[in-house]
């Protein structure tokens, strides 16, 4: 197979663009979260650095980079250093399979706005989000601290349980689209979004991704107030920053996936496709921030009970019903 240099350049440009946009967006999501939480609590939020506090992410970055890089005595050196990257990198890699706009035509080439259009895109997403669990597990285990260990044990149990219901809630989507390829899933929704056929699967997926990105009310692995900061208690400086930014990248990516699977991806009237996609992702991000400002944290047994006894059976029933419905419709 021979590659055109323009093709390669375009792919590299896409990768660069995605990296830049995701990282900037994640940094500003932190800022947006602080602002929205402040508004919810009748405060003003960060407003000192730059106009309206807009340079706050930059200031945070400088602060994180200049902090002491601390490693506790008895910590497993390599795993301790590796874990933050294991949390952040899979999160950003998932974005490779998400189509974020309609295909463009540039220099006579059709450019799909998607870094890699794999025919197993959905499975790759499941696999990468499972790898991200290692970041939590190893980070807490390698820290040699009881809080971090408890946090990572909780994280492990939570992420694995909710990954199950997340995966099961996506089966009906695959059945409807008849493909694991994300661009096919998006194209299958050009007429009607899957949320109309699968409202239950959408709700299950939404709850599961809230648990996957360890957001309140499912923030048990971190649970400040019980576990100091959970699995990243012992991390400081940019290593903590990687965990932190990884979490926000996760929000963007999982929001993007929710939009892709249920809200028609980049499909939408009047506005350009990329704008529609961004709007959908940002509204998911806002929903998560809003939830964080409202809901209290679940208890550990409630979390397990909810995941295993409610979400997973519901998702299974949903699959069976969808199967019957597809067969009856022919």
């Amino acid at each position: 197979m021979i590659y055109d240099p323009i093709d390669i350049a375009l792919i590299l440009a896409k990768i660069g663009l995605v990296f830049f946009v995701i990282l900037t967006l994640a940094a500003y999501l932190v800022f947006a979260e602080r602002k929205v939480l402040a508004w919810i609590q009748d405060r003003k939020g960060p407003n000192r650095v730059g106009p309206f506090g807009l340079l706050q992410p930059l200031a945070d970055l400088i602060k994180l980079l200049t902090k002491e890089d601390f490693r506790p005595i008895g910590a497993d050196k390599w795993l301790f250093y590796l874990a933050p990257a294991m949390a952040a990198i899979p999160a950003i890699m998932i974005f490779a399979v998400i189509p974020f706009g309609a295909p463009l035509t540039l220099f006579g080439h059709t450019v799909p706005l998607q870094v890699a259009d794999l025919n197993v895109g959905l499975l790759l997403f499941m696999a990468l989000s499972s790898i991200a669990v290692y970041g939590v597990a190893l980070g807490g285990w390698a820290s040699n601290s009881k809080y971090a260990l408890l946090g990572s044990i909780r994280g492990l149990a939570q992420l694995i349980s909710y990954e199950l219901s997340m995966g099961l809630s996506l089966v009906p989507v695959v059945m409807l689209a008849r493909s694991f390829r994300l661009s096919d899933i998006v194209n299958a929704q050009s007429g009607c979004w899957f949320i109309v056929y699968q409202p239950l699967a959408f709700v299950i997926f939404l709850i599961s991704i809230a648990a996957e990105c360890k957001r309140i009310p499912f923030d048990l692995p971190e649970a400040e107030g019980e576990l100091v900061a959970g699995f990243h208690t012992e991390y400081s400086g940019m290593r903590f920053g990687l965990f932190f930014v990884g979490e926000y990248i996760n929000i963007i990516v999982l929001g993007g996936l929710a939009a892709t699977f249920f809200l028609g991806g980049w499909h939408g009237p009047w506005l350009p496709p990329a704008v529609w996609f961004a709007l959908k992702v940002l509204s998911f991000a806002f929903l998560f921030i809003w939830m964080r400002g409202t809901l209290p944290r679940l208890r550990y047994d409630q979390l397990m009970h909810f995941g295993w006894k409610i979400l997973t059976p519901l998702a299974l029933v949903n699959i069976v019903v969808t199967g019957w419905w597809l067969v009856l419709r022919g």
């Binding site: 009748d42 003003k44 400002g293």
Partner: peptide, 10 residues
């Protein structure tokens, strides 16, 4: 909480 987003901060 939605209503509080539009309140004047104290």
């Amino acid at each position: 909480t939605w209503k509080h987003i539009f309140r004047r901060p104290v």
